[in-house]
Amino acid sequence: MGRYCVKRLLSTIPLLLVISFLIFMFIHMIPGDPARLIAGQDATKADVKVVREQLGLNKPLLTQYGEYMKGLVTGDMGLSIRNGKTVEDTILPRLKPTILLTLSSAMWAIMIGIAIGVLAAVFHGKMADYLGMLIAIVGISVPGFWLGLQLIQMFSVSLGWLPTGGLDSWQSYVLPSLTMGSGVMAIMARFTRSSMLETMRADYVRTARAKGLIESLVVLRHGFKNSLIEIVTVAGLQIGGLLSGSVMAETVFSIPGLGRLLVDSINLRDYKVVQALLLFFALEYIVINLIVDLLYGVINPKVRYD
């Protein structure tokens, strides 16, 4: 299995190369001149020219790409144009809050989402089903910024139970995790429900029932277990989405995460930071996919890696 992982990761290198080129061309295609933004509105054309040369933006695009890749290979990702920090120094401090938030949001959202989904499937067509799906739909149909601001008003200002933001203590994770996770929870619940409904009607489940197994055992051992592959796939995608940052939750709760960094950097046309972030997201997506594939094997030992 170790060998399989290495092979999988190595095979993604060409993909990453292609992605890096696409990303580079793509973000330079977006209109906007960082030199003008840095120099300021009142700067003259000559001022802007000086800045453009300083930033190396006057060279042909392909040359810039070549230099960028050369730097990348030697571990030099360049400097942020905002303040001259290295790209590593810009991105690394933002990783921790994003990862912690992703984990705390994903954990409750996936568990509760699956639980709601299973219950809804078991009580298909009954009140519990409707209630579960109602919760799920509310989760999908409330925008993050709205939910976040409401939670702050209720739990921080009116009740005074939880802090309004930041990431100073475990309490401060509660509201952002709720905000970020609600959508994930909803999606998990719906997918689990529909997948469970499918498997619960499969022949082997009927057989199990016919054999006289008690219902809860049927649900768990046969229905749920066979739905797991699909559930894990969806969960993987959702975690990937969370990791690339929820800019809304980060804005509302003043969290210095990757989502806000990405949006700020795009706004400033801070190309090197955007490139590095996008490459990171691509890599992260590949790794999550790998983990999901490995989990398939755990869930169903019949799956072989080759």
Partner: peptide, 12 residues
């Protein structure tokens, strides 16, 4: 502290 959202600043 950097608190981009106006409503959150007021709450703080």
């Amino acid at each position: 502290k950097e608190v981009p959202e106006a409503g959150s600043r007021t709450a703080m």
